[in-house]
Amino acid sequence: MIKEIIVVEGKDDTTAIKRAVDAETIETGGSAINSDIIKRISLAQERRGVIIFTDPDHAGERIRKIISSRVKGCKHAFITQEDAHKRGDIGVENASPAAIRKALDNVKTEFGGVAAQITWEHLMDAGLIVHADAANRRMKMGKLLGIGYCNGKQFFKRCNAFQITIEEFVAAFSRMELEQKAGSE
């Protein structure tokens, strides 16, 4: 049984989570999160801890931001778009039990007030911002680092909020470069 309570968007996500692991969930009911849901999540965070596990899309990111801005110290599970894709639909409910377990095995904890490890220069040097293929490169790096896909500003924030070290960043970058080189041969 997973100690923390997993925050998901809806009933189908709960069903998918329960197929994969023994856990309890709180459903937000979509992106219009009301104060009662935030109170339940806050109480869960105080008593057992919370893992936010939303869809890898715009609405899921919006929900993740709302919750983590109001409930401090949340953990985050990220699933890739390809693992959450089924017949043109993207969502946790489409993921296999193995993909869900993998995301939960790679949970990241958000820390506030920590000095930045990764700088804008790191992102620029890695071609993650101000680069013709920046979005694709962020998607690959986000997958390798286990922090999901997002725009450049959010990628920077996640790297630092989840205390990604320069060593982890460089290792992921090197792996991405090797995979790209192998793919082009």
Rank of each mutant, 00 (worst) to 15 (best):
Ile41Ser: 01
Gly73Lys: 14
Phe162Val: 07
Asn160Gly: 09
Ala77Gln: 11
Leu104Asn: 02
Gly142Tyr: 12
Met141Cys: 04
Gln154Ala: 08
His76Asn: 11
Gln163Arg: 15
Ala77Ser: 08
Lys140Arg: 04
Lys108Ser: 10
Ile41Val: 02
Asp125Leu: 06
Leu104Arg: 03
Glu61Tyr: 13
Ile33Trp: 14
Ile52Arg: 02
Asp57Val: 04
Arg64Ser: 08
Lys75Phe: 15
Ala59Asp: 12
Gly148Arg: 07
Lys65Thr: 13
Arg158His: 14
Thr28Pro: 01
Ala84Leu: 11
Asn106Tyr: 15
Asp133Arg: 09
Arg101Thr: 13
Ser68Leu: 06
Arg101Asp: 04
Ser31Thr: 03
Ile67Val: 12
Ala161Leu: 14
Gly152Arg: 05
His131Thr: 00
Glu93Gln: 14
Ala99Lys: 13
Gly142Asp: 11
Ile129His: 08
Ala32Phe: 05
Ser69Ala: 05
Asn136Gly: 01
His131Gly: 00
Asp125Trp: 09
Asp55His: 02
His85Asp: 12
Gly148Trp: 14
Ala134Thr: 02
Gly152Thr: 06
Ala135Asn: 04
Gln117Lys: 06
Val107Cys: 05
Ala59Val: 11
Phe162Lys: 11
Ile67Asn: 09
Asp55Asn: 07
Asp36Asn: 05
Thr109Tyr: 09
Ile38Gln: 03
Ser68Tyr: 12
Ile164Pro: 05
Val130Ala: 05
Leu144Asn: 01
His85Met: 10
Pro56Phe: 13
Ser35Asn: 05
Phe156Trp: 12
Ala98Ile: 12
Gly60Leu: 04
Ile164His: 14
Ala103Trp: 12
Gly146Ala: 09
Gly49Asn: 05
Gly49His: 10
Ile147Glu: 08
Gly152Asn: 06
Gly127Asp: 04
Arg101Gly: 03
Glu61Gly: 05
Arg138Trp: 10
Ile38Ser: 00
Phe111Thr: 11
Glu61Val: 02
Thr119Gln: 02
Asp89Gly: 07
Phe53Asp: 02
Ser96Lys: 12
Ala99Pro: 08
Thr109His: 07
Leu104Ile: 06
Met141Thr: 09
Gly112Phe: 14
Ile51Thr: 11
Gly142Phe: 13
Lys39Val: 00
Cys150Ser: 15
Ile129Ala: 03
Cys159Phe: 10
Thr54Phe: 03
Ala84Cys: 01
Ile90Gln: 10
Leu123Gly: 02
Ile41Asn: 00
Asn160Lys: 13
Ile37Ala: 04
Ala132Leu: 08
His85Asn: 10
Pro56Gly: 11
Asn34Gly: 03
Thr119Met: 00
Gln154Phe: 10
Cys150Pro: 05
Arg137Leu: 05
Lys65Trp: 02
Thr119Phe: 03
Ala95Asp: 15
Ile63Ser: 06
Ile52Gly: 00
Gln45Tyr: 10
Glu82Ser: 13
Ala103Lys: 05
Ala84Lys: 00
Asn34Glu: 08
Val114Lys: 10
Lys143Met: 02
Phe155Ser: 07
Asp55Arg: 03
Ser31Ala: 02
Gln45Met: 08
Ala132Tyr: 13
Glu61Arg: 09
Val92His: 13
Thr119Cys: 00
Arg64Leu: 10
Gly73Gln: 13
Asp36Thr: 06
Thr119Gly: 01
Gly49Ile: 07
Ser69Thr: 07
